[in-house]
Every structure is written in C-alpha cells, then in structure tokens.
C-alpha cells in the first residue's frame, strides 16, 4: 500500500496556489529526492506529505524547529515525546534517565555530536544545530523520514555521512535537496518541481547533474 498517494492535488497559502495538479505516489522503501529551484514548491510538497502521513513520519523542517534553551539531549528526546507518558517526559526534562541518555547518545554518535549531549542548542553552530534536528528525526520511531534541506549547513563530507545514516536508519526517506549531485547519489528516485508542478519523476540511477538543468533554467 502506498505511503503517499496524491492525485491532482492543489496546495498553497491563503488562496494562492503554490502546488498545482500534483499526482505522486510513494511506496514503502523508496528513497525520494525532491529537486527544483527555490520557490518551486519543494517545502510545500514536503509539508503536504508530512500532513498526509498521519501515522507518524519523522520530520526535519527547514527552520529545524529546535528549542534553543534546551540541551541537545532534550531536543533529540523530543522525537519520542509521543511514545512516553507525560510523567516520564517531565522526569526526563528535570533529570534525564540513564536509559534515555544511552539511547540518545547512540543516535548522536552516528552524527558525531556525542560530545555535545548536554550543551544548550542555542550555543551550537549552525551545522551542529542541523545535526541535532536530524538526530531528533532519527530518534523518532517512525519508519518514514521527511527532511527539508537537512544537510544545507554542513560540509560535503559530513553531508554524505548524514545522508548515509538517514538512508540506513529509515526505510522510506523523502528529501528536499538543492545539491543535485548529492540528490542523485543518495536517492533512488528524483522528483523535479518547477513553478509548482511536477515536471520530472524518474529513477536516479544513471542520471547526471546536468540532466536536471532544465529545472533551473529561466523560463522561456
């Protein structure tokens, strides 16, 4: 059964349509990269996808959605807030339990952030903050990961490591990416957007970055 099944969808803000006539089906196990120039509607498409995955997708929003005054531990722990009782959440807010510290520590070591476990997020660099948000999504128990530009603030080496981890941890991954080479390398299917419409939907295997040029060229 498809995880996402859009048929001729239209979406936008306050009456202005940003996406039009979207038809898209994503099956479990797929790794999809959404590409296109900024303003093409990538974030809107991802938001729509997240809203449709009612039974729990993990999310990395573009603005990260971190709580600046909490520690890295707490921000990552928030990925499983819905799995624990309020009482347990409160206890972990006041005094982190060893079991949870171990689990979160394991996630962070995959992202090379284990030394920042109890640092306040507000004191971290942009790249470290981005990795914290990815950590929260990885800690989320959902099988689907929806991530909007999750590696935009880290160097290419780290980006590859993070994308590899994400692909390894989550069965289905839907990414928005502006880096064409990375998108081709880590996705097995590319969805190209231009002016709010899907203009490309093909397997990534064998594609070259130049093949996507038409998505970015000025209209006309």
């Amino acid at each position: 059964m498809a995880l996402i099944d859009f048929r001729d969808e239209t979406a936008g803000y306050g009456g202005t349509a940003i996406l039009e006539g979207i038809t898209l089906r994503i099956e479990p196990g797929e790794k999809v990269a959404v590409v296109g120039e900024s303003g093409a509607g990538k974030s809107t498409l991802l938001r729509l996808a997240y809203e449709r995955c009612r039974n729990g997708a993990a999310l990395v929003p573009q603005e990260l959605g971190l709580v600046q005054s909490l520690t890295v531990f707490h921000n990552v722990y928030m990925g499983r807030l819905h799995r624990h009782s309020t009482w347990r959440n409160l206890r972990n807010l006041v005094r982190p339990a060893p079991a949870e510290v171990r689990e979160v520590g394991a996630v962070l070591s995959q992202l090379r952030l284990e030394d920042k476990l109890f640092a306040a997020v507000g004191e971290l660099s942009g790249g470290q903050q981005q990795r914290t948000a990815v950590g929260r999504a990885l800690y989320h128990p959902g099988e689907i990961l929806i991530a909007d530009e999750p590696v935009s603030a880290v160097d290419e080496h780290q980006a590859r490591e993070i994308l590899e981890t994400m692909n390894g941890e989550k069965r289905t991954v839907v990414l928005a990416m502006h880096d064409r080479a990375l998108a081709i390398a880590f996705a097995d299917r590319l969805v190209g957007l231009r002016n709010g419409r899907i203009v490309l939907d093909e397997p990534a295997a064998g594609m070259k970055p130049d093949d996507l040029d038409h998505l970015y060229r000025p209209a006309g």
């Binding site: 993990a58 999310l59 928030m78 807030l81 989320h140």
Partner: peptide, 10 residues
C-alpha cells in the same frame, strides 16, 4: 517552529 516539529500525538 518547535511546535511544528513535535511528533504527532505528544
């Protein structure tokens, strides 16, 4: 923003 990133049903 953090509100939107909280898992559904928290």
């Amino acid at each position: 923003a953090p509100l939107r990133a909280v898992p559904l049903g928290s």
